[in-house]
Design a protein around this nucleic acid. Structure first.
Lengths: 195, 195
DNA sequence: GTCTATAGAAAGATAGAC
DNA sequence: GTCTATCTTTCTATAGAC
């Protein structure tokens, strides 16, 4: 198809989202101006409004994409045979996926309050959706006698909080490799729900 | 001493800090204006500057007070005899203290990026100071053969993240009492570092 | 598709009256 | 100690030229 002079929509859109993600995570949604995002991309502020109706929608799209991808990626993995094996897979998946997307993870926990009620509810529902996948593993394992958790719902929240915390301190090239971190967390999680 | 007409400094200062804490936690530091804080207190915006040199210092004072009180309160507790007993005390203390101050906890994790380098370093040092108290318990317990944690530093961070997560979902008057939550988390923590 | 220019609102912080 | 008033800057979002 013909390329119009000055048309870069196919590349500018993603670059805007990437710049917004980085800046929002680093400085906070409210502290980042549309001008800053535009400057990072190399366009003027007004040009951003060709790609988003407003600032909040830009944030919402980032969070929605992140949650959709999180769930879709997990669901695409072949399920392991037993609850303990599924739990191990979940631990390693959650750490790995979130470490690859530390900015989006931070945003999805810290900037929800900048969404309007409808957008907020959408993201919250996706989060619960994801958490329920861990909840189901714990439930199945409990029924099979593999796990003993006094309260499956609390165990879910406790494990997710523990795993997600990795994104706050892990640094690439640091003392521990990702696999080693996965090993250590899996050891703790495994024991924490042990029968 | 004589009371000057219109003088309310002894009450206004704390009320400003309380309003700022609530508003910052609910809406985010950057999203809250000095005018909003003043309106909540019932004074005009200019009056706030009698109590703080600027907005960032107001945030810093809130975070500093919180960390100081956290550490002082823990240090004032009589230490339990054994590492497992000390670990249990820490779990219950951390949950209880943080549930009483959910706003400050949220702030101290989410709004550090709004501090300048010097203020940031101060709060980070206090946080490490507190974390090291848990680290010492795990270290002592490991030496005594009470615990087996593949990596004491990671276990510290994992446990803190897990416990602090309670503040994101706990609601007073909900399904579980605080004591019950403490029981369940202690069960998981105890097992997670079991020998 | 992007730019310049700008409308209109709101921000942090200060000055001076009371 | 607080208020009113305001300076100055910055913000989101839009209009219209190219």
């Amino acid at each position: 198809m013909a390329r119009k002079t000055g048309s870069h929509s196919e590349i500018t859109g993603p670059r805007i989202r990437a710049a917004a993600l980085t800046l929002f995570a680093r400085n906070g949604f409210a502290a980042v101006s549309m001008r800053q995002i535009a400057a990072e991309v190399g366009v003027q502020a007004g040009a951003l409004y060709l790609y988003t109706p407003d600032k909040e929608t830009l944030l919402f799209d980032l969070l929605k994409s992140h949650m959709d991808e999180l769930i879709a990626t997990w669901d695409a993995l072949p399920p392991a045979a037993t609850p303990p094996a599924r739990l191990e897979a979940f631990v390693r998946f959650h750490i790995g996926f979130n470490l690859d997307r530390a900015d989006a993870v931070f945003l999805s926990y810290m900037e929800l309050r900048n969404l309007g009620p409808a957008n907020f509810a959408t993201i919250e529902a996706l989060r619960r959706d994801y958490e329920n996948r861990l909840g189901a593993i714990l439930h199945d394992g409990q029924a099979a006698g593999d796990f003993t958790a006094p309260d499956a719902k609390l165990a879910t929240l406790a494990i997710i909080a523990m795993l997600t915390g990795v994104t706050t301190w892990y640094r690439e090239g640091g003392r521990l490799s990702r696999d080693r971190v996965g090993d250590i967390y899996w050891d703790m999680v495994r024991k924490s729900v042990a029968a």
